[in-house]
Design a protein around this nucleic acid. Structure first.
Length: 291
DNA sequence: CACTTGACCTGTCCGC
DNA sequence: TGCGGACAGGTCAAGT
């Protein structure tokens, strides 16, 4: 669910809402795995610290603090970071919100600021996590060292994707672009949408794809993600932004969650398969295998 | 090393 | 209605 456009949407919201605020208290709510830092660490490096910046790398959020530590957050599948101002709605629109009063039964941690506003970390399935790390150590964690290029940066080109795919020639293109060490930020929704955009069947073996198609795929990934970003990301079931609002990109999706419907391009039937262990949506007419 | 599969959780939906 | 099972999908560990 939260893929790059969703995490970036949360980042932008948090940057607007929490930079400059000072942490008054923080607690994990019966969820040591969601927020594993000790009470002593929280006291020393979080309480009293001011939020200086909110960054993102791949699907990971980095909330930089004046203490020299950062809150590193991965929302995984059902994580939400929702800010509530002192008016209790954080400036968002209750009618668009998936969530009501906070904390709720999925709230795993709460960070309260000195002005009594608060940031809630909700996560139904508890796959997500949030932890304090020295800011200087963040680039040293395994994930950061291995993760691939950011697809929305100008430096991400067809040639870059072509090079990154060289060591994944013997797998399907879907598995390859979901691999965060190939490129950062693609998840199930944008994998299906960008493969549809270039008429590539998700099961196509990477090694058989012409270079020109890889180049098109790189631009398709960019445009699909930019489009999603401009609509606040995709809300399938859980995802909300930093104010609790849903994203509306799925209105524009061509194949994702559209099984049984006609392909917007050729009228063929959209079917759902399993590729790389994931539910995969494909037009059986214009995304034929082995073109 | 490249590649695949299962585990991690907890909810919803579907068939009987 | 209740109940079991499949499914959801990001990452990592363990397997081939």
């Amino acid at each position: 669910m939260p893929e790059l456009p969703e995490v970036e949407t949360v980042r932008r919201g948090l940057a607007r809402l929490i930079i400059g605020r000072e942490v008054a208290a923080a607690q994990s709510i019966e969820s040591p795995r969601s927020f594993p830092n000790s009470a002593a660490d929280v006291e020393q490096f979080l309480v009293g610290a001011q939020v200086q910046a909110v960054r993102r790398r791949a699907k990971v959020l980095l909330i930089e603090l004046s203490s020299g530590y950062s809150l590193v957050v991965h929302l995984k599948m059902t994580g939400q970071l929702v800010y509530r101002g002192t008016d209790n709605w954080g400036g968002g629109h209750p009618s668009d919100s998936l969530i009501g009063e906070l904390p709720d039964r999925f709230t795993r941690a709460v960070i309260t600021f000195t002005d009594n506003s608060a940031l809630y970390f909700n996560d139904m399935r508890r796959f997500g996590w949030m932890r304090l790390l020295p800011t200087l150590e963040v680039p040293e964690i395994d994930f950061m060292k291995k993760v691939g290029p950011e697809p929305l940066e100008e430096s991400f080109t067809g040639e870059v994707l072509f090079e990154r795919l060289k060591r994944r020639k013997n797998t399907t293109i879907k598995a390859a672009i979901l691999d965060q060490t190939v490129l950062a930020g693609v998840g199930n929704i944008y994998a299906d949408e960008s493969l549809w955009a270039v008429k590539l069947h998700p099961s196509t073996m990477v090694g058989t794809i012409p270079k020109a198609i890889i180049y098109s795929l790189a631009s398709a990934i960019k445009s699909v993600m930019f489009l999603s970003l401009s609509h606040g990301g995709s809300t399938d079931k859980n995802y909300v932004d930093a104010e609790g609002n849903k994203g509306s990109y799925l209105v524009f999706a061509n194949v994702f969650r559209r099984e049984g419907l006609p392909c917007p391009r050729c009228g063929g039937k959209i079917v759902k398969l399993r590729v790389a262990g994931r539910g995969t949506h494909v037009c059986e007419q214009c995304q034929e295998l082995n073109r």
